[in-house]
Design a protein around this nucleic acid. Structure first.
Lengths: 328, 328
DNA sequence: TTTGATTCTGAAAATGTTTTCACGGAATTG
DNA sequence: CAATTCCGTGAAAACATTTTCAGAATCAAA
């Protein structure tokens, strides 16, 4: 068992209050005793127990993150942002992923509640109101890529709809009149928004065919195969995310369909490997890492007593053109 | 402020001990009082404060993970495994990444120490002894992909050397006599092992040229460019990980070098996107997700009092052949 | 010299739980 | 019927800190 304040106090010949005062620099202590305390701390290799500390200070120096899942490059980037920001603010990151159904979501929020000073919640398949009903304003919550219709809490989103609209408009402008669209997971807020954006972007000169999908490479593969069988055949495949686009790309290369000559392909997210695909993948760039940092920054400011009431950010997204849609 | 045991006890007209007994089912309580307690709990939406609980029980139901960084698909898979296993065991995951230098490593270990019941440590650039010197046997530590020369602690590794040796041998057998090798980060245990494996696999009939690298796509790109200039030109590029292999692949496609016809390419890790690259990437398959699960399982067993003294696992690795080395 | 402020210090309270202890009453045993 | 066991219960201790409170000592000002 490791040393406690009492051990340090005994060894230094002072009271535990004095030890605490030295360690936290919270009140003047005579030079003599300070030296003795410090020496005892070093000798015993004493580290204050953060649990006891949290109990009395009502502060855990920990930030909780509730995510739907953690696989894929998109989440790797997201986590990298969360990790970077939290460690910059000298906080720890308490992770609770794999939460898609409401019940596990609920328990996750509760067990993270007292263990962290605030939460970053990404719940594209849920809504902010449901989350806030559980935390009941007892805990700062900043939402990330989540629908917050009443703007009741700070959030950091990106323009799923606008990004996809811009991408679609670009394809139409490039002369594509029939575009196959691979949808994302049904029921997910961001997937719906992207689908909306696609429809808006089509305008009146182009027509779109939508295929089921769930953000996986497999779903993109299947959609591409089905798209190839359609008559007349579409000239472009636009997927709801890069992973699905990669799946589509694979289906096409396997069948020796030239990309972009015979079929253009585009994705969404612009994950790192999009630029390393062959052909490199045109995608809607989402600076998710920076957005995660931004969310943490807002949360930390809130925790430290700052006013973040109106902190709502919707990042505009731009298209990153690459080989898979031609005319690099 | 949320309700405490005292509030529940007062409302139910019992003592706090009784409330605790009902909630933890730790001693018989009369049916009448049990009902009243449960009703008060529901009414006040009471959730026991886990911090206070941890303080007295010396148990946090949290598992700490100390990682060198969190970017890339490899780490996404690793985290997915950690997350999956911890949530299965109803534990939380406390993450502390971005630790490569010894000093931040030290503070990370200390602050994770009292906040978690045990640690999963991946420190390829460090050694187990250094870590254990800090935790001083006060905390269960299971190592993942880390050098534990004295087998003093349980670890879950995979055969970096053997995997790379097998891959090299395969290339040699396929007729490659000059192979360019892209090294991983110097100083990292796994990088060194892979380099060793490459050298061993060459045998006497083939010759290898090694290029600097650091597990990034950029380093693979640069190495490939340099390899192309070498005379005589190598016929295969073998990278220390898939990301670097993707970078090499990119350099080659940009220069219209046919893969695998003009140049074979292979990687290590077999990340999900390796199978979606064009051409799909031959790689040494590392079941990192399953290995992470295994590490957590060992740790949890240890925490629950099991005997894990001899738990050392080194996963043998197999080569996954794909298009980038021909003869799928 | 007295007053008042300032500096330093330790005892004790507080944080929100679980667990130990002691005790009364009921049930069981001889 | 006495002795023993068992069940149900609340008071109090314990966990490892920080913080409040009050008191002692020192020092400056009047």
């Amino acid at each position: 068992m490791s040393a406690s304040v009492h051990d340090v106090a005994r060894r230094a010949g002072v009271s535990i209050s004095t030890v605490s005062r030295v360690l936290n620099d919270t009140a003047p202590v005579s030079e003599d005793k300070r030296r003795r305390v410090l020496e005892a701390v070093a000798r015993l290799d004493y580290w204050p127990n953060p649990v006891a500390r949290s109990l009395v200070k009502h502060r855990t120096d920990t930030i909780g993150a509730v995510l739907p899942y953690v696989t894929g490059e998109f989440f790797a980037e997201l986590l990298a942002g969360l990790d970077q920001a939290t460690s910059e603010y000298e906080k720890l990151l308490l992770l609770s992923a794999s939460h898609r159904e409401a019940t596990s979501f609920r328990t996750a929020l509760h067990s993270l509640g007292h263990r962290s000073d605030g939460l970053i919640v990404m719940a594209p398949e849920s809504t902010a109101a449901q989350v806030l009903k559980i935390t009941r304003d007892e805990l700062p919550v900043v939402f990330l890529n989540t629908h917050v219709p009443d703007h009741r809490a700070p959030y950091v989103n990106f323009d799923n709809r606008g990004g996809m609209r811009t991408m679609t408009e670009h394809l139409v402008r490039e002369g594509h009149e029939r575009i196959a669209f691979v949808r994302g997971s049904s029921g997910a807020f961001d997937a719906e928004e992207r689908t909306q954006g696609f429809r808006e972007g089509l305008g009146c000169s182009a027509s779109g065919t939508e295929f089921e999908g769930d953000f996986t490479a497999a779903s993109g593969y299947v959609a591409a195969v089905r798209a190839l069988r359609a008559t007349p055949r579409p000239t472009a495949i636009l997927a709801s995310n890069d992973l699905a686009a990669m799946g589509a790309l694979r289906a096409l290369t396997e069948r020796s369909i030239q990309v972009p000559a015979d079929m253009a392909v585009a994705g969404f997210d612009d994950v790192p490997s999009a630029s390393y695909a062959t052909p490199s993948l045109t995608s809607v760039h989402v600076p998710i890492r920076a957005l995660a940092v931004r969310a943490v920054t807002i949360l930390v400011e809130w925790i430290q007593g700052g006013d973040v009431a109106g902190s709502a950010h919707v990042e505009p997204l731009a298209v990153k053109l690459r080989e898979s849609t031609g005319r690099i």
